[in-house]
Design a protein around this nucleic acid. Sequence first.
DNA 1: CGCCTTTTTGATAGCCGTCAAATTTCGTGG
DNA 2: CCACGAAATTTGACGGCTATCAAAAAGGCG
Lengths: 240, 240
Amino acid sequence: MDIQQIKAACSTCSLRELCLPLGLNHEEFESLDQLVKQRRKIKRGDYLHRTGLRFSSLYAIRNGFFKTYLLHEDGREQVTGFHMTGELLGLDAISSDVHTCNAIALEDSEVCEMPFAKLEEISRAVPVVMRNFHKIMSREIVRDHGVMLLLGNMNAEERLAVFLLNLSHRFAARGLSPNDFKLCMTREEIGAYLGLKLETISRTFSKFQEEGLMEVSNKHIQLLKLDALKKVVGNDTSCR
Amino acid sequence: MDIQQIKAACSTCSLRELCLPLGLNHEEFESLDQLVKQRRKIKRGDYLHRTGLRFSSLYAIRNGFFKTYLLHEDGREQVTGFHMTGELLGLDAISSDVHTCNAIALEDSEVCEMPFAKLEEISRAVPVVMRNFHKIMSREIVRDHGVMLLLGNMNAEERLAVFLLNLSHRFAARGLSPNDFKLCMTREEIGAYLGLKLETISRTFSKFQEEGLMEVSNKHIQLLKLDALKKVVGNDTSCR
DNA sequence: CGCCTTTTTGATAGCCGTCAAATTTCGTGG
DNA sequence: CCACGAAATTTGACGGCTATCAAAAAGGCG
């Protein structure tokens, strides 16, 4: 594991509008600067944390892409999320001080390590930080409920459409193109997130392409008709 | 809606080992006593909150049983959880100050209303309360991930077995029988939670009964072979 | 006690999983 | 930079699990 230590400061970070510090004033920012213990580079394929390991820090993604997943004992894998710049990893581990899922980098990435004890300490002193943190945890719960709706009620086309629209939305929020991007996960990983097999993902991509909704060239995706994609799901744009 | 106002005090509450105050000392308890604004009785079939309504308070269940669920616009319903004594409702609403799901009482119930602003205030003063609250939110995330695993990877028998074992576990934690209890939800509601149709729930109950794993008499459930039920899932006892 | 809701059970159909094989892409080392 | 082998993707054929439709039976509330 290639761990590179860099002292990071939230007050000069370009991600303030995405990450935990969202909406703080100058003073509040300064009190945050003690929060990040170090920056760490995680290479593609390396783990940020694994199930069962002791928890002490949350991680904010500075750049890159992660997947988190659970392993059932018989080897079945459930991807619990794909995570990108500005998102927080490790929230599940607070409950028992032990990580309950695996987090692996899908591309070379960089994270800010934030000792949780320190975050709670700063939360006590700076109400806005506490509020932001609570909102972030709550947002994760809302997101998970959305996935439950998807897994419990939707067919393959709807699931994939929701997935693509969600990615599109999140890329757009980061200043990237909402209709032209590269997937950094495999069909199998998409399937493990959406409760489908890789063949079904592949077939559904092909179907969407035949219908002119999108262009698929291996991992390169172009969404041609966002509105039509939304109609596949039933116009629900509200996913996060 | 029959709202009965009772001033409640956490320091004399019998649920301290289940609810938010878990593990506080005497002093810490006293500072919690300002937290509960009122107790409310909710009759069976009444809503504690509904999607879209403004959020201001969390609710701790003193007794009774709730179901929370999302409605997709075309009427599809996803039950996001069944909730009993000692559990906290409303966590999803923190993210946007608006409730994102419906919470309906499945039997006559009573809740403690805890203004969220006050909870944050007390959290600031009493670190243990903050820690407990964070653990509770995190536990909800872990639980949701478990449901994602269930919905994404398990067949009908496994899902129902997980569901029954989970109920069994939670009843036991409340001093009730782990193998003899009454379901207060319908087959349809179980199905809406497990991503299955009511007929499938009914058939699977029948199958478990034929196999001697349990006795089903309408809503009255007796689990005869807990170990065998666990084997249906693959020995995973870890579901909350 | 009667009506409405819930539950059970059967028959059939459809969606997605499974198995298989061909093709493309990617990573590693020469 | 190219070549080779492993991994990922695509596509087809088939089967199984669960949904759907239907009807009868049981339970619960007024």
